[in-house]
Simulated assay, not measured.
Amino acid sequence: MKNRWIIFFSGIITVKISGKGLERLLNTLTRNGLNIWHVRRQGVESITFKIKLTDVKEFRKYVRGSGLKVSFFKREGFPFLLKRLLHNSGFLVGAILFIFIILLLSNMIWGIQVKGADPATEYKIHKELDKMGVKVGRLQLFVENVEAIQRQLTNNVEEITWVGVELQGTTYHLQVVEKNEPKQPEYLSPQNLVAKKKAVIVDMFVEEGQAVVNIHDSVDAGQLLVSGLIGKEGQNVQVPARGEIWGETWYRSDVELPLKSTFQVFNGNEKRKYYLKAADVKIPLWGFGKVEFKEYETETNEKNIQFLKWKLPLSFVHETHRDREVETRIYSKEEAFRVAKEMAKLDIKNRLSEDAKIKGEKILRQSLDNGKVTLSIHFQIIENIAEGQPIIQGESE
């Protein structure tokens, strides 16, 4: 029968009629628009069929005075189900509370395990986690995702180089790599040290091998600096040449900076919304209404809801809408050249190793055209120019 769900919510009664004139009654019912179905004969003078609860009153009118015996022996559908639930409301409330408590406990943080960190660093990590709200007993739904936790720990705890964060069930597992971890000894095969680039040598420290250049020497890229062949002629021994050869090198940085520029900044206003998500449907829980900001950025944090060890097809969504404004920055000519010079230095530092130093600088060209500053700077850099090059089998000094 069509629309079975509608009939289910309206209620269904199974009716048994006994006596003579059954067919005549059935014809009367159908002729007057009453829906009956699942009609079955029960013996010679009895039949059963189903009828909607809403049609029972009308049915009684037609059966009254017919001399037939009528009994209602089966009740189905939502009205009767609700009645039974209300009758056993204590069990219903208990079951709902039990499921709710299990659901709540399944989505709480019950453990935080940190591996690879000494006690002092582990204490700092736990302190930082407390600031972020990642603590035992806190609901996972209101905690940042693992990527954000990992990023904040790496930025805020100076003692660690890297931390991996993984959520397994109700426990966060953190694997830490500390900065002060002892370096593993480096085992090198026999090699020479050669120049990485053109330079003038200003200082040198040879740990192993034979230096073949001196301070103030000018060298080209690929030129031999320290030989890995030591000993007398004909009795050479191959060793891994090691050391630092400091040379003066040269770099050029070109920077363009407009006097007037626009950019977007956050002004501190934000609106938060919370949803329960099932499939692609989001049901608002808190933070109703439209976002009234003209320009804004949305950050979404979605957490799956678990029941014991199973992930339910439900998730808790937290959206943060941050208001942003367009700012216009205008430099004077002097400010623009100063900022462009700082940008050039930053560009050079990003291209150098940490131990390299800027010895000097010289402005090659600076101009102001079409509202834009153009600056070219020549930098003198002191850096280690040595790099290893394997010794070819049979090579002699």
Rank of each mutant, 00 (worst) to 15 (best):
E159D: 06
L224T: 06
A195D: 11
K197V: 05
L92H: 02
F293T: 06
E327L: 08
F293G: 08
K52V: 06
A340E: 08
E248R: 14
K294N: 10
G19A: 03
Q184D: 09
I12D: 05
E233H: 11
E244Q: 14
L368M: 12
V373A: 14
V226P: 14
Q393F: 12
Q184Y: 12
M204D: 12
F49Y: 01
K124T: 02
N370G: 13
N155D: 03
E319N: 11
K61F: 00
N145A: 00
E178C: 02
S46D: 03
E159H: 01
I391D: 02
A120I: 10
M1W: 13
R338M: 08
F316I: 13
G371Q: 12
V213F: 07
L103S: 13
A278S: 04
E256Q: 13
I13S: 04
H87Y: 09
G11R: 01
Q366E: 15
R351G: 06
T298S: 15
A221N: 13
Q380W: 11
L81T: 04
G228V: 11
N192A: 10
I96R: 10
L81R: 03
E395P: 07
G231V: 01
L188I: 07
S367V: 04
K115W: 01
K16R: 11
E144D: 11
Q306H: 15
L29A: 09
V39L: 02
I6L: 04
D280I: 05
G133F: 01
D130Q: 15
K16H: 04
L375I: 00
A279N: 14
E244S: 11
K290L: 01
R138V: 03
S315D: 08
Q380G: 06
Y331A: 05
K183Q: 09
G268Y: 12
I6V: 05
L81Q: 02
N384A: 14
D203Q: 14
F49K: 00
V239E: 06
N35I: 06
K50D: 01
L285R: 08
S46Y: 01
E335D: 10
L167S: 05
Y172I: 04
A211P: 15
L229S: 04
D355H: 14
E181N: 09
W246P: 03
G247L: 12
K311M: 04
E292P: 04
K74E: 00
A117G: 04
E361F: 02
W162E: 07
W37I: 01
L104I: 08
E158N: 07
G169Q: 03
N32Q: 09
E158V: 03
V157R: 00
S218I: 12
T300A: 10
A195M: 09
L225I: 08
E207A: 10
K260G: 02
E383V: 08
I392S: 07
T28W: 09
E147F: 02
P190E: 13
I13D: 02
V177L: 09
L153V: 05
D355S: 15
M343G: 07
G94F: 13
I102S: 14
R60I: 02
R24M: 06
D347R: 11
L29V: 03
L352I: 08
S18C: 02
E147M: 00
I96S: 15
Q380V: 07
S10R: 12
G169I: 06
Q42F: 02
F98I: 03
E244D: 10
I96G: 13
N27K: 11
Q184I: 05
K183W: 05
Y123W: 14
L29E: 03
W162K: 10
